[in-house]
Design a protein around this nucleic acid. Structure first.
Length: 156
DNA sequence: GCCAACGTTGGC
DNA sequence: GCCAACGTTGGC
């Protein structure tokens, strides 16, 4: 079992937005970081759990569960000069950026706030809350994943 | 809006 | 390959 924590700014794209999408599925746009890209390209599998985290907002924290819904594929918009995701250095025969689709899975009964993620003794070592960490995608150990689900009031 | 931490860029 | 400058992230 593999789980991930993925950050999104709710004003840009929230967990409720994901749930409201057709098929409750959305391409994970916006990643422009090589480490995060490598996780999607090299390690993510369809069906992996995703802890959906709201960042840069009044109450940052994990709000629900999603799943990886596709293998990694090239960002369609990286080749489009009109797109905000355009990258002039990315070549079609060797795309620089990939993404995966993410599908809504389950709402948490309650949000697990950043302070809880930081302070819960069982969550010691969680990558996402390491001081200085800014990665928008981080792997989550199974024990940590189960603990965060429990704090969120769901079983998984 | 501030600012610390970090990643990327580009001149040399 | 170094490293200063710059941009971005994200909590507060």
């Amino acid at each position: 079992m593999t789980a991930w924590l993925m950050k999104s700014e709710p004003e840009v794209f929230s967990f409720a937005d994901l749930k409201a999408r057709p098929r409750r599925t959305e391409p994970w746009n916006g990643v422009r970081n090589y480490q995060a890209r490598n996780f999607m390209r090299d390690q993510m599998q369809v069906g992996d759990w995703v802890l959906f985290y709201h960042s840069n907002c009044a109450a940052p924290g994990v709000v629900g569960l999603a799943k990886v819904a596709s293998a990694a594929y090239p960002y369609p918009t990286q080749f489009d000069p009109a797109s905000e995701y355009f990258d002039p250095k990315s070549a079609k025969e060797n795309p620089r950026w990939v993404l995966v689709d993410v599908a809504w899975a389950k709402d948490f009964a309650r949000e697990v706030l950043l302070a809880e993620l930081k302070n819960d003794p069982e969550l010691e070592g969680l990558l996402a809350t390491r001081p200085g960490n800014r990665l928008s995608i981080t792997p989550v150990e199974e024990a940590h994943f189960r603990r965060i689900c429990a704090l969120g009031g769901i079983s998984c």
